[in-house]
Design a protein around this nucleic acid. Structure first.
Lengths: 237, 237
DNA sequence: CTCCGGAATGAATCTCAGTTCATTAATGAA
DNA sequence: TTCATTAATGAACTGAGATTCATTCCGGAG
């Protein structure tokens, strides 16, 4: 049944989101998915491909959301950039799809390429937006590719601190070389609603007290970075 | 001899910088350092602690450079921010100390904490600079902590693309994650000239027609992000 | 010259997690 | 009901690589 496949993918996502990749052995994922260890290999050729596919799906969803905003051609580029950033951040902060681990925790090299690729695609989107803005005379001349990447980096790094509050340390007796062998009662926090709605998820109104503030601050940073300084001031926020 | 210790640390740095963490087995590092595998454990309690120490040293050096600029109290904060960013980026691009692998390649969890901590300290420096700027009335009100992190993220992410051009792929199975394990017998396949010389890192004199440009663009991005938009325009460029 | 103590050695050991596969259970057609 | 086909199972296997440790080596003291 192809339903097992879905369950395994979902289990992989949940385990990584809640426990970190280090804890995501095939056996653990299998047990969360309620299948036997060996069954995983009936659906995926290897552990790496399982996690790569999972990560790709998660990233694709977020990318789709951002792209949707980027494609609203009738709005000024700067505004779309701010909105896209804010939406991405907001979704990350409320755990819809992305999670601390998925953004910054390293998995193995094979899987990591997927994350890198996702970042690159995201950067492309922002780069494209910047180019549009320049073409429309709304933004000053700048290196769109580089700044697109910078926007992505700023956005993600700014999210790390807020997100890690929710994501306790992963640890794994591994690095014995260090005092304090972490393991503060395994996370298990996030309820992780079975699955976020469809990619359509836009920012919804009310939210946590500071979530809104964080989101807006990040967006403001990115808007200023790209259009704040030599551009014409016609676009006020 | 405490000299072995130094050599081992240096070897660890060289191997990671040139081959990536994936290739950095204890045996490889030992051979580069010209000591026996077991000798590594005479100086370090574990592989993780060796790499953690190495990474900490590298990061400390960069951090010191940035701090030195940040401490030039008589210059306007915004200027110092731009300078610090430019300097960090330039050093990274010419391989002085940092390298692609050190910035983005995942090591194991224990070691990664060191990288995370380094990023956090860097963010603090920028955050502090922003605060100074606000206190001096040079920068508009903003969340210094968050923006400090964003500056770091922007800077690092913008460096990834330029740096990865020089950073050979880490190999180790393709993204597809299919079987067919690489690694034919000897891991020591690579020649690995024992030189290592000074931390200078031999970089082909391909010059940097754009190194300067990249550096300046990143700095401009960060300056604009932090002070471009509502602040007084007294600081032009 | 011979004898210690500690450092270096590197092959052997141990661990651990991904992968395999012989076996069992389930489904459904004859 | 029975057989065939496919999915599921999970214990055993395997390989990679970190760690260990019995042994060798070396410099200096007696």
């Amino acid at each position: 049944m192809a339903d097992s496949r879905r369950r395994i993918l979902e289990a992989a996502r949940v385990v990584v989101a809640e426990q970190g990749y280090a804890a995501a052995q095939v056996a653990v994922v299998a047990s969360v998915a309620d299948v036997a260890t060996g069954s995983v290999y009936r659906h995926f050729p290897s552990k790496a491909s399982l996690f790569a596919e999972m990560l790709r799906a998660v990233c694709d969803r977020e990318l789709a959301v951002v792209r949707a905003i980027a494609d609203e051609r009738d709005r000024p580029a700067l505004e779309r950039i701010g909105d896209a950033v804010a939406t991405f951040a907001d979704r990350a902060l409320r755990g819809e799809g992305l999670a601390y681990a998925v953004i910054v925790e390293p998995m193995d090299p094979g899987v990591d390429q997927v994350r890198l690729a996702a970042r690159a695609r995201l950067a492309e989107v922002f780069g494209g937006l910047i180019e549009e803005g320049m073409a429309a005379g709304q933004l000053a001349a700048q290196d769109a590719g580089l700044r697109g990447a910078a926007v992505v980096g700023a956005m993600l790094e700014a999210l790390v601190a807020p997100l890690s509050r929710r994501a306790a340390a992963t640890a794994t007796g591994g690095g014995a070389g260090y005092p304090g062998g972490r393991r503060p009662g395994t996370t298990t926090a996030t309820p992780m609603d079975s699955d976020a709605g469809t990619p359509g998820g836009r920012r919804t109104g009310a939210a946590a007290p500071d979530r809104e503030a964080i989101t807006e601050e990040i967006a403001a940073f990115c808007r200023a970075a790209v259009g704040g300084f030599p551009a014409q001031k016609e676009d006020r926020k």
